[in-house]
Write a protein that binds this DNA or RNA. Structure first.
Lengths: 292, 292
DNA sequence: GCAATAGTGTCTATCAGACAATATGTA
DNA sequence: TACATATTGTCTGATAGACACTATTGC
């Protein structure tokens, strides 16, 4: 069988980009790395890289996730009821506007990863080149360039969270020497390329998916309390939930949580039971996100 | 700014594949075309083609949709409350296993299109090279090769539909001369490449999305009755629904349906009011798929 | 009349949300 | 003791599902 004539189709580069979400200090945060070269030199961007010649898309995303965070990706197909130290990883969407990278035609298969709170990013050991940034900060009104790729993807921004972030690793301010079309890209504090759009789509995916699946447990350590799980929902949705009704709801949904046996007083107050994620992946009935 | 060194990344071809779904004779059907060349010569496949050098992914999918069906794709962003003769089109997922095409490395960005019942396929005017096939038939137990790319994507197959299809355009039987690894690909009646997996993912997307969105109206003509909309739900989910409760539910959901003014007796019996799709895209509360 | 579909009304078990009350730890 | 969180219980309004009943056409 003859191979394709290479002149019969245009050449593409294929990359994977990662939206790695976690909950830190009651705020939904994502992992960003600082770009060391043009274009968008000095700006923050989502981690990612080229897909290798004999590598599946999911494998490339899992490899990037390990390189950037040390997290081992869960295989959603494997029935492992014990989430040792793995993050949830799933394909998000693919972005391929012809001008999204000025150098050449690049199609990026974005993936979404949900991880428990981690000690610190470690992009080559350089703490100044990677950080957990609150998504509220990155998705300010003017940060998203380009047309919406999914309807209602910007509906419902987070509301109350506003904690101060690492004092030494704030937004880089003086990157105006890299002046390629800043109006379109939302100013020097915004993410590079179309990454704000990708991040917005990933955040919206996470917000909707914890409604009808048990994925919120992916933000928690292996053993967690009902209150910790509630704070995950509150941070991701940007709302406050009634602790009593939340407790009744999650403990009453079969397969969502299984008791782990012990108790903890991590949060102060009366000791809380520890739970592990149950085997159920789909929640029926779903958790209800409060009205807007 | 220097372009990438071409040797720094592996070369890819990028294609779009289309899962075009419609409801015909109470059955969920998809558009398939017969392959005229190796590999998988003579087998049915999803329509698709290469993304052009300066073409966005969604534009490539819309172009393929017009070429194959004559349907004009809706832009989900444009607020057009009057669906003239357009199909819903959205990105589904991207498939890029290294060996999915034996000729070279091909990454396919699959799209999902939902269309009302159409007169007939017209792939180059050759009626024998394109057909609407019931998905139940294409997704028989052994037809899906490869690992599951989305959890629970094969849960809940359609149950009752089993109408005879076009007698002159049934499945091609004697294509055994094209003998590249038929065990892996599910036999001569199965779809080419990994298209059974793509179709299964598209069907599952449609089944879940009509729960919480008004997308079921994309299967209907511009004006339709509540009974016709109910038959769409029944065909897509493979269930039967109570006509009385369904009527109360859809007419009571604000923004879902707006009266079009007339009545029709298309289905026999008492004339039914005609409706158009309302402006609402998200249904709250959602339609509830009956338990398994 | 009979068959078929459209549409309305009613009943009930269930559930989401509001919130009182109690339990059990730390400062 | 004061405070914070966990956990259970109760009440109420909304609703999904079951189903009786009526309405309007064609045969």
């Amino acid at each position: 069988m003859p191979p394709y004539d290479p002149s019969a189709f245009p050449p593409f580069a294929v990359t994977v980009d990662l939206v790695v979400l976690t909950v830190r200090r009651h705020a939904l945060c994502t992992l960003v790395v600082r770009r060391g070269e043009a274009p968008y030199q000095g700006r923050w961007a989502l981690p990612g890289g080229f897909v290798r010649a004999d590598e599946d898309l999911g494998a490339a995303a899992a490899r990037e996730l390990v390189e950037e965070t040390g997290l081992c990706a869960h295989d959603p197909a494997a029935p492992s009821p014990v989430p040792s130290n793995g993050a949830h990883l799933e394909q998000l969407a693919t972005y391929g506007a012809p001008d999204r990278d000025p150098r050449m035609r690049v199609v990026s298969v974005a993936h979404l990863a949900l991880a428990p709170d981690l000690p610190a990013p470690r992009a080559g050991g350089d703490a100044n080149s990677a950080r957990w940034a609150p998504v509220e900060e990155l998705l300010a009104e003017d940060a998203i360039a380009g047309a919406a790729s999914s309807p209602a993807s910007t509906a419902g921004a987070a509301s109350t969270v506003g904690t101060a972030e690492e004092p030494g690793a704030g937004l880089v301010a003086g990157a105006a020497d890299d002046a390629d079309s800043e109006e379109k890209d939302g100013g020097p504090g915004a993410l590079a390329f179309d990454h704000a759009r990708i991040l917005a789509d990933g955040v919206e995916r996470a917000r909707s998916k914890i409604e009808y699946s048990s994925l919120a447990t992916a933000f928690c350590p292996p053993e967690f309390t009902v209150g910790e799980l509630r704070r995950v929902y509150e941070a991701v949705w940007g709302v406050t939930l009634d602790p009593r009704n939340f407790h009744r709801k999650v403990t009453g949904t079969p397969g969502f949580l299984v008791p782990a046996g012990g108790t903890t007083t991590r949060q102060g107050g009366r000791p809380a039971q520890l739970f592990r994620a149950g085997g159920a992946t789909l929640l029926n009935p779903p958790m209800l996100r409060p009205e807007v």
